[in-house]
Design a protein around this nucleic acid. Structure first.
Lengths: 156, 156
DNA sequence: TAGATGGCTGATGGAACACAAATCATCTAT
DNA sequence: ATAGATGATTTGTGTTCCATCAGCCATCTA
């Protein structure tokens, strides 16, 4: 794994700047691709989280998205207006809203993702298919705290 | 590599939403850590690019940062005011500015990076050391088009 | 010498967000 | 039963980042 070498030549491996940079480039492209679908990047993030979770409380959503609760409301309003999500009252605590993807939401998300193939091709062009898969799994793991489709032990 | 399984269960592996999400979380934390140093995330990105390149034209910088030229000017003004970078006229074309890190810039960047250890610990907490190293190398590869400290063939 | 180019300045506008305050329905504890 | 806390909503304000445009100077190229 050439660890020894890398430690010598680059004592501090901080991913934050790289992550920032790459995410920015990705987002610029993504905005253009998503616009025709009436979506913006943060919509996609929210939909993705909801798909992974299979529904969530608004508070929980605010926590994982690291967004203010009031802004979550606006975001969900937009998604609900497009019938991509549904808000239902929680049976246990009727103050709470349970947010879930609708069938249309699932489809729209899939549609958006396939439209993004070209974008990833451009932004991640330097990575081959297997490297992209590894990247995806690492991001998934880091983002959700849970391994993606592969057990953590198989990731490296 | 459990590829077959993942293809079946998740037909579209789009990293953009995950990247967006993770970069956002990282940036929120990063801002707080960097503030005492008088830096903001995009300063760090610019400094990082400059370190990798060992100097650059402003235009080239604008291209790789995917930012408008006029905004690059402002960004560099801030960095120059803190004496972290230097603008020198290019000898070949005196219209051009060659931007380089100063010694103070190199030091400040290193300082910032070591201050970010804690942040990465929190945001990438779900990844072990070797996974973080892999992530770093993949990001580096994707961001620069060139492998980091390891040859591309050793990345997976 | 004319036009293109790199960079600088200033102004304008939009989008994403954080934050605050007030409202309503509902839950919880006394 | 009632008081206070909580989840969600609405509205409004302010900030920051950023794109865009227009005008300017210095310099290069034809």
């Amino acid at each position: 794994m050439c660890m020894a070498l890398s430690v010598v030549t680059q004592p501090t491996h901080r991913s934050s700047a790289l992550l920032d940079h790459l995410a920015r480039r990705m987002r610029l492209r993504t905005e253009a691709v998503l616009a025709p679908l009436g979506l913006r990047p943060r919509h996609l993030v929210a939909l993705t989280v909801l798909r992974v979770r299979g529904g969530s409380t608004q508070q929980a959503l605010a926590t994982t998205l690291a967004m203010d609760g009031t802004n979550i409301v606006g975001l969900l309003n937009e998604l609900e207006a497009d019938k991509l999500i549904e808000r239902r009252r929680s049976p246990e605590d009727r103050r709470r809203h349970l947010v879930e993807l609708t069938d249309a939401g699932v489809k729209q998300l899939a549609k958006a993702e396939s439209a993004l193939a070209q974008v990833e091709q451009e932004v991640l062009g330097a990575l081959d298919a297997s490297q992209r898969e590894t990247l995806y799994n690492l991001l998934q793991l880091a983002a959700t705290g849970t391994g993606g489709t592969c057990p953590a032990s198989m990731l490296e």
